[in-house]
Design a protein around this nucleic acid. Structure first.
Length: 262
DNA sequence: CCTATAGCCTGACGGC
DNA sequence: TGCCGTCAGGCTATAG
């Protein structure tokens, strides 16, 4: 689930739930999701603190602690958050639970353990060290900057869009949606896109991501005409009623409409 | 620089 | 119903 729109919703969710409450304890159910830190050490760093802010870069969430450290959450393919009070409501597949002094809990839910939890001194340093590209919807992402990111890329558009070191936040599902709405075939090369196509792609990227956020990143509530609700081989294209095809691009399954995307 | 492949994990789903 | 293979919204390491 967690691409940029999903993580933005989780950021807002965190912001409206966990801020300014003292952390009293911690439970780690899957040690392997912790990177470069032991459970006991993480607990030491968190207990007694509150969260002061929630930031996001691409698919990464950063929660600022009153100590000045930051908790970094990355959700892998299956991560989610739940804030709840009653222990009976503890979600299945919780891998990390943070307890607050108001007797509420925050659970990091992750059936597959492909996400990561880190403690950071500075998110900006983290972004730099990971060589992440700029966030896809940051205010500095104007057309000129967007164009510059892909200027000398010789990879296929879908691959380049999913490359977090080029641009951060777009994954398999939303790359398909953006290319579908822009009418561009996933295997086209960036180099050969016309200025007009590139412009269309830029505008569509902003539009698709923002719309997804506006609809709480819940595909079932998205307007008709989106690929995401028909993203299966053999489904009907919502625009032309043709057949949705599945292809492999860079080892991932891409879905597109051969008629609408050239 | 780019692509393809495998591996990390484990639940959900479809077919028999 | 039960078993089994396949797939899945991420990322990394490795090889060509």
């Amino acid at each position: 689930m967690p691409e940029l729109p999903d993580v933005e919703i989780l950021r807002r969710y965190s912001e409206s739930t966990v801020l300014y409450q003292e952390i009293t304890s911690l439970e780690v159910m899957a040690e392997r999701i912790l990177e470069h830190i032991q459970p006991a050490q993480l607990e030491d760093r968190l207990v007694g603190n509150s969260f002061l802010d929630a930031d996001r870069h691409g698919k990464h969430l950063f929660l600022e602690l009153s100590s000045g450290y930051w908790l970094n959450l990355h959700f892998g393919m299956t991560g989610d958050l739940k804030y709840y009070k009653d222990t009976a409501d503890e979600p299945e597949y919780s891998k990390l639970i943070i307890y607050f002094d108001n007797s509420y809990h925050l659970a990091l839910i992750m059936p597959r353990k492909l996400g990561k939890v880190r403690l950071l001194e500075d998110p900006e340093n983290f972004v730099t060290s990971k060589r992440l590209g700029p966030d896809a919807i940051s205010s500095s992402m104007d057309y000129e900057r967007f164009k510059g990111l892909f200027m000398d890329s010789r990879s296929m558009v879908k691959s380049a869009f999913m490359d977090q070191q080029k641009i951060a936040g777009i994954g398999n599902v939303y790359s398909d949606e953006i290319l579908y709405q822009a009418g561009i075939h996933p295997r086209r090369q960036f180099k050969e896109l016309s200025d007009q196509e590139l412009h269309k792609l830029y505008n569509t990227m902003q539009d698709v991501l923002q719309t997804a956020i506006d609809f709480q990143a819940k595909p079932e509530t998205f307007p008709e005409g989106t690929l995401i609700k028909h993203r299966r081989e053999g489904e009907n294209c919502p625009k032309c009623s043709g057949r949705i095809e599945r292809i492999e691009v860079s080892g991932r399954a891409g879905y597109y409409c051969p008629t609408c995307q050239a």
